[in-house]
């Protein structure tokens, strides 16, 4: 079951002279949860719109289930980044309406709408106009509307933004549940924890270009292994160890600093060097450690590393 769901080949989108998406290629196999990451203005939404055939690429080709998105619209579900609903429509009617636009019969769509609203705790609001719903509830209705026709590929643009922690949990469940039923999910997010928890693979773009495409484990390998230590003692001697690529000062949060005063340090290790050797060296040289940390880098660090300075903007969104 590793059919290719989505195939993007050498896609470029120009707005006048501005290159919003620059020669991007990737493909998504069936049944995976694919994270779509990138700083603001990286071209994520434009790419998603092109996948959905809302926009036409300037160059390149996109195939969803081997065809154009509109030809297979009943197999695709889409939740846009900015959420909104018809204010005067009832919750069930909106879900049913979008489902019929995806090819469901009106009768089935209505039935399905009530079923979904009940399952996700909105039964009492099914017959309310959406203007009477809270923001979070409205968003939930929209999520349900995007998956009501049980699509094989769901594209979610920032599905977690605006949801409280409980509903973020619900959203995660929806995503996991769909993946469990062999559906393919492509979602964009700027919250790395979500991506790290949920994704099988990630696609990272910045400035319209593809930066990384692969599994999370692979993405972490793009960063050199590192050891973080906290000590008041001088550690210059550690830099002499064979295989230590770099010794740099960091602050308590892990960000590099200019002043080399400690007490936080980070050592980047070469491939052949074991972190254990650093620990042994510390003992040998009587460096008193307050903390020794050899955990893998977080996805956030990978992101910052791969995207570079642009990432700062993204992390403050």
């Amino acid at each position: 079951m590793s059919e290719t769901v989505l195939e993007v080949q050498n896609v470029t989108k120009m707005y006048g002279d501005f290159r919003a998406v620059d020669d991007i290629s990737f493909s998504i196999p069936s049944g995976v949860i694919h994270g779509f990451l990138g700083p603001n203005g990286a071209g994520k939404t434009t790419t998603i719109r092109m996948i959905l055939e809302i926009l036409q690429p300037t160059e390149g080709s996109i195939q969803v289930f081997g065809a154009g998105a509109l030809a297979v619209r009943e197999r695709i579900g889409y939740l846009p980044e900015e959420k909104g609903l018809y204010k005067k429509m009832k919750a069930w009617a909106i879900i049913a309406y979008f489902a019929t636009l995806k090819g469901m019969s009106r009768k089935d769509a209505k039935h399905r709408a009530y079923e979904l609203l009940e399952r996700y705790g909105l039964k009492d609001f099914a017959d309310k106009k959406t203007e009477a719903l809270s923001k979070g509830m409205g968003q939930k209705v929209q999520v349900l509307a995007s998956i009501a026709h049980d699509p094989d590929l769901v594209i979610l643009d920032e599905p977690f933004s605006g949801l409280d922690p409980v509903n973020q949990q619900v959203m995660e469940e929806i995503i996991r549940d769909m993946a469990g039923r062999d559906k393919t999910i492509l979602f964009s997010t700027h919250v790395m924890q979500h991506a790290e928890r949920l994704c099988d693979r990630i696609l990272l773009i910045a400035g319209g270009k593809k930066i990384f495409d692969g599994s999370i484990a692979e993405s972490k390998k793009s960063l050199p292994r590192r050891v973080r230590i906290e000590t008041e003692d001088s550690i210059d001697s550690l830099a002499q160890i064979d295989g230590v690529v770099e010794l740099r000062a960091i602050d308590g949060e892990g960000a590099p600093t200019e002043a080399r005063v400690g007490p936080h340090w980070e050592l980047l290790l070469g491939d052949q060097l074991d972190a254990q050797a650093i620990l042994e060296a510390c003992f040998a040289k009587s460096i008193r450690l307050k903390r020794f940390d050899q955990s893998d880098p977080t996805l956030h660090e990978v992101f910052v590393h791969l995207v570079g300075p642009e990432a700062r903007e993204a992390s403050y969104r």
Partner: peptide, 17 residues
């Protein structure tokens, strides 16, 4: 304008031309 300002338009355009 409602569809535009609510961005419902995007969902619509992912389903219809």
């Amino acid at each position: 304008i409602e569809e535009k300002s609510n961005r419902i338009i995007e969902v619509l355009l992912s389903s219809v031309t």
